[in-house]
């Protein structure tokens, strides 16, 4: 099992795949976080009677398998004649999916700021915007950041699904090598190790942040 026909070039091929994985994740998380923060603030400050259409759409994004969403958007953009590349489609779908997850994180974090604290801010003469940026944001950040890190790692792992649209990311790259070298266990273990090396340290960092910030509450 340990004498392998895999060469350094093959490893580079896999690392380039890992680069694609990270690149898609970065775009999706950046876009998804911006959207998610906006949606989260809307969801936490307006009444549910007004925001239910938004809540419904975000719920759908969280309850339909990502694979189905990818195929749906991909075929829809073809039907509508937008001519998106698989890469664009993947980034858009993953960003919307991330937005749905981040919205929940932001909403939970904002609602965790005590109502009395916010009233105190307003009665000291702060405007709504000041209250949001100087009171709610710093306090909600401490609650939300560990969950946000988990969402980011989740999206990184879920981004493996874009292989279905023909993008050569880490898992697809290893699958190609498996087909050529016929050493599934070894190559998949390398791929798993790469995922692990990306994910594990960040997950640990998130856990540590969560613990350290809880001490002061």
């Amino acid at each position: 099992m340990f004498d392998t026909a895999m060469t350094w070039n093959d490893l580079m091929f896999m690392l380039r795949g890992a680069g694609v994985t990270l690149w898609i994740t970065a775009i999706a998380v950046a876009g998804g976080t911006m959207l998610g923060v906006v949606f989260g603030v809307i969801r936490s400050s307006l009444s549910p009677w007004v925001t239910w259409p938004l809540a419904f759409v975000l719920d759908i994004l969280r309850s339909v398998p990502l694979l189905i969403q990818l195929v749906l958007v991909n075929s829809f953009q073809a039907i509508a004649g937008w001519g998106w590349s698989p890469f664009t489609t993947s980034c858009v779908v993953l960003a919307l999916y991330t937005a749905a997850l981040v919205t929940e994180v932001v909403r939970g974090a904002v609602l965790a700021v005590p109502e009395t604290t916010r009233r105190a801010a307003r009665s000291l003469g702060m405007t709504w915007a000041q209250d949001q940026t100087q009171i709610v944001f710093p306090m909600a950040l401490r609650v939300g950041l560990p969950s946000w890190i988990n969402v980011t790692l989740g999206v990184m792992k879920d981004s493996a699904l874009v292989l279905w649209l023909g993008i050569i990311e880490l898992l697809r790259a290893s699958q190609i090598l498996v087909t050529r070298l016929q050493e599934p266990m070894f190559i998949l273990m390398v791929a798993g190790a790469i995922y692990f090396v990306i994910s594990f340290p960040i997950a640990r960092l998130g856990e540590r942040l969560e613990k350290r910030w809880r001490e002061n509450d």
């Binding site: 099992m1 790692l153 792992k157 879920d158 493996a160 699904l161 292989l163 898992l171 699958q175 498996v178 050493e183 599934p184 266990m185 070894f186 998949l188 273990m189 791929a191 798993g192 995922y195 692990f196 994910s199 594990f200 997950a203």
Partner: peptide, 23 residues
């Protein structure tokens, strides 16, 4: 626990389907 949480579910299914073939 750490492998299950830090690798994609799709990878785990691949491991069961293709990877175990090595044995």
């Amino acid at each position: 626990v750490e492998v299950a949480r830090n690798t994609p579910a799709l990878f785990q299914i691949y491991m069961a389907h293709f990877g175990l073939g090595s044995f």
